[in-house]
């Protein structure tokens, strides 16, 4: 039996051990990258962590230098930094007056909501458009959809946001310009949820349109590829209705590459979230990153970089697991 086969037959514990090792490797790797970035910044790491320009008292700076061993050789500093990161001590943001890990956890739900909404929108609308284009391949519908996808694929996220604000908030006055809720209204329960929903529409669509273009192109391409396969010919030969073939035989099999793409695109969706949250003042991680940037709170910025990388790894593991449900032929490794 091959080594791979052996591993696959071992208990799921081995798989999870491998996944945890993968996470640990990524965390240590990114912490290393962060450490060197901190040292590239002008001034010593204590000044950088204190948010520069005298945000903290001299006594505190001295304490900070001691805590991170800045008077000691680089490898000891690195060890201390790594130890802090692994115990989830990402430092303290003097500009915001809160620990970095706390700030990140506070802002995570808003970003998660935005990303979930925009990914759902991009997936559903993208699969529908791609489906339509594939069924009408070579016709006008296909051409129109393909051109639209091409345009959205080339349009910067922040510019879509600006244009949507001009149209839907300034001209039509249908949707709010920004923020996550109408604070002064003091809504409760369902009214609050509806209010957040109204605020969510524009940011979610803005973030989703670029990825909608990707999913449209991908669905169309993989459906056309599957249309050429023997089992589809068999289905046609035995008289299955074309609509049923398109949905049950072709679309279903075309969904797998889309899920793969979703996992691969997660990092870029997070990057887009920074821009969208900045445009719409959405109080999430991206907005926090922008504030950190503006206040030159580099330690906070690097903390966000680490946290979002971990998020990417975790979601990719979830995607791996989802394969097994979508396609029983795929062995989870």
């Amino acid at each position: 039996m091959s080594a791979v086969g052996l591993i696959q037959r071992l208990a799921p514990g081995v798989r999870w051990a491998r996944r945890l090792a993968q996470i640990a490797f990524i965390v240590i790797g990114i912490a290393t990258v962060n450490f060197f970035l901190l040292h590239l910044a002008p001034g010593d790491a204590a000044e950088v962590m204190a948010g520069e320009a005298g945000a903290a008292t001299p006594e505190f700076m001295a304490a900070l230098r001691e805590q991170f061993g800045l008077d000691q050789p680089l490898y000891i500093q690195f060890g201390k930094y790594l130890g802090n990161v692994l115990t989830l001590n990402l430092g303290y943001s003097f500009r915001q007056g809160l620990p970095v890990s706390r700030l990140i956890l506070d802002r995570l739900p808003a970003t998660a909501l935005l990303m979930a909404a925009s990914i759902t929108f991009a997936l559903v609308a993208g699969a529908a458009l791609g489906f339509l284009a594939a069924r009408r391949a070579g016709h006008l519908t296909d051409t129109i959809i393909s051109v639209i996808a091409l345009l959205f694929y080339a349009t910067p996220v922040f510019w879509i946001g600006v244009v949507l604000i001009v149209i839907f908030s300034v001209w039509l006055d249908w949707l709010p310009v920004g923020g996550m809720a109408t604070i002064e209204a003091g809504y409760q329960g369902t009214a609050y949820a509806l209010d957040v929903g109204r605020h969510l529409v524009l940011p979610a669509v803005t973030l989703g349109l670029f990825h909608l273009a990707i999913y449209t192109r991908l669905t169309r391409a993989s459906m056309l590829q599957i249309y050429g396969q023997d089992f589809v010919r068999t289905a046609v030969a035995k008289g299955v209705a074309p609509g049923r073939i398109a949905v049950r035989h072709v679309l279903r099999n075309a969904l797998l590459p889309i899920v793969t793409m979703l996992g691969m695109q997660l990092g870029s969706i997070l990057g887009g979230a920074i821009l969208v949250e900045t445009v719409f003042s959405w109080p999430g991680l991206g907005r926090l990153a922008f504030e950190a940037l503006f206040q030159r709170d580099l330690n906070l910025l690097l903390g966000i970089l680490l946290a979002s990388s971990i998020l990417v790894v975790v979601v990719n593991i979830a995607v791996d697991l989802a394969y097994g449900f979508l396609d029983p032929r795929v062995e989870i490794s």
Binding site: L37, L40, G267, G271, A289, L293, R296
Partner: peptide, 16 residues
């Protein structure tokens, strides 16, 4: 590849 590319680029430019 795991580090969100835009955020990574942003951190590098912010620091340099």
């Amino acid at each position: 590849q795991t580090i969100p590319p835009f955020l990574f680029a942003l951190a590098i430019v912010a620091i340099l």
